[in-house]
Design a protein around this nucleic acid. Structure first.
Lengths: 312, 312
DNA sequence: GTTCATCTTTTGTCTTGGACGATGGGTTGA
DNA sequence: TCAACCCATCGTCCAAGACAAAAGATGAAC
């Protein structure tokens, strides 16, 4: 087994790179044409062979693109420079809220201590109560974990473990509340292509203690089905969550379309990081730029609501 | 409703069809070239516009391919013939187990009765216990829901509601078990691009009552991170789930790569619909073609395991 | 008759290079 | 200050050809 064995060690074809980086084959070929990067070797059949170094740099670029940077400016930098860039971007906005807890959780993740993590989360939850836990603990924790991942201090699987354990904790707490048949009925979901469902669970965790009846469809419901579901379930509020990376135009178009097609007595909430990038006010859409506003929006809705016939 | 109705009503571009059917753009174009199906209309820019009828037939074909049939033979049949074919194939393995329950659940979904659905699921779970619930109730229910969706009897959002409520029920039950620090430690996840995480939860629900310590990373962990996580958590077993639609080649390549990179004392389980299409035996990979085999595989592992030093 | 190896057909993926249109940033004008 | 516009950037789609991998069919040996 001491042959030249795998001369290139590990090489990946274009499909594997698409899988590993999330960049489509078309994009990979186009970048090669336009920017000269990546410029993979070729096998006997002329097919591209990417190296692990290519993957690393592509991942770094993808990370930075997800926070708004453009690929054309990024490809010319080295991997080290890209990582430095990521550091710079995450440094400025720091808040002193429970930095000790954040350090603890990051340490637990890096030590791969799943039981310890679960214990810590459950502990904080019981101590603070569900709503405070979400607002004061989970929100800054999410940011800390996200930044640690950007810096490369956390690996993908460590971040996955965090998300999973957090969902377990939140789900357990939400289910502990007695089933409500109350008002309002809220339908929770995201647009197609929006992967992140954690926000939905966090919103549910804020609403359920207020006596709201939440109906969650999970992430990625087609637009037309969101409309149908809102009508079928006769909901009072339709709550949609958008992560920071979601294309602004796609969101506003979709929201406007839903607003047109749904009866006016259905309130539409749009929340999540993306909503901070929205400039124009959208008639008939309530923007919820941060989680704390959710409860306010609920109070406001209740203040103005008058029971109506026809199930609404 | 007897108008030519919506001239463009709903048309999808090739990306949307890829998303909806799981067939790559390349495959869709190649089928059009080779078989003349689908033959979508074109917009002003010459881009393909697929109709909902195209989608329905493509889905029917995809489903039959997932059980081993070849596309060349399928494209020439009508949608009705394809559905008939599917019925024939699914008829043999019919279990008379609770067809009444299946009808009930479908009826609840179509009536959009979320509380009723949740109540029914929780009821069955308490009556049967977690493991029997997963094996005897959830498995056939999933099939029934999937088939109803294929037939168009269920809308997307109704299927989403089912998945969500089922996850709530399973998650609640799994969490009710005391935290185990036991042996074996099992790492659960899926490959990138594998959307379906429900299988992971079902496996977890089967293993936790056996005293297994499950560490779930949720779906879509990059290959390299799966390897790192298995090592970091010093797991005895790595369990991977693949839906029927998952590309066979990608799965076998990935599994072989993991097998090469992980120490031999780490057992690798590959489960899910896809594994039924696997022909060649893969050395060092335990195939788990159905959920019931999971418990057997665990028993077998325990029978052969001898405690070792170095944490394994 | 069964099993294994080889050949053929089928099917999926990769290739190139061109084109269009959506998105974002910047500038101009009200 | 805000909206409308323009331009550069960037992603997706198209066509047709080539080849490789998988599945099925054939034939030979046991």
């Amino acid at each position: 087994m001491n042959l030249p064995a795998e001369p290139n060690g590990l090489v990946l074809n274009i499909s594997a790179v698409e899988r590993e980086t999330g960049l489509s084959k078309d994009v990979l070929r186009m970048w090669e044409r336009r920017y000269g990067f990546p410029r993979p070797g070729r096998d006997d059949n002329g097919e591209r062979q990417y190296t692990p170094a290519d993957i690393a740099k592509l991942r770094a670029i993808k990370r930075l693109m997800d926070v708004g940077l453009r690929p054309g400016k990024l490809v010319e930098h080295s991997l080290d420079e890209l990582n430095a860039l990521a550091d710079v971007r995450s440094a400025p906005r720091k808040d002193q809220l429970a930095p000790a807890l954040e350090r603890d959780v990051l340490a637990l993740l890096q030590a791969h201590d799943a039981p310890g993590l679960q214990h810590t989360l459950a502990n904080m939850l019981m101590k603070q109560g569900l709503q405070r836990f979400v607002l004061d603990t989970v929100t800054p924790l999410n940011r800390a974990v996200g930044e640690a991942w950007m810096r490369g201090d956390l690996q993908v699987f460590e971040e996955h473990l965090y998300t999973e354990q957090l969902q377990v904790a939140l789900r357990t707490a939400v289910n502990a509340f007695p089933r409500q048949s109350g008002v309002p009925r809220v339908l929770l979901t995201t647009f197609p292509h929006e992967q992140h469902g954690l926000g939905l669970l966090m919103v549910e965790a804020l609403l359920v203690p207020e006596g709201v009846q939440c109906i969650s469809l999970g992430p990625q419901t087609p637009l037309e089905d969101i409309r149908r579901a809102a009508v079928a379930h006769k909901v009072h509020i339709l709550a949609l969550s958008f992560s920071g990376a979601f294309p602004l135009r796609q969101a506003t178009d979709g929201l406007a379309s839903l607003r047109r097609q749904l009866p006016p007595q259905v309130t539409i909430w749009a929340g999540g990081e993306m909503t901070r990038r929205v400039r124009k006010t959208m008639p008939g859409i309530v923007l919820i730029p941060d989680l704390a506003s959710t409860v306010n929006a609920l109070r406001s809705w209740r203040a103005h609501w008058v029971p109506q016939a026809s199930g609404y």
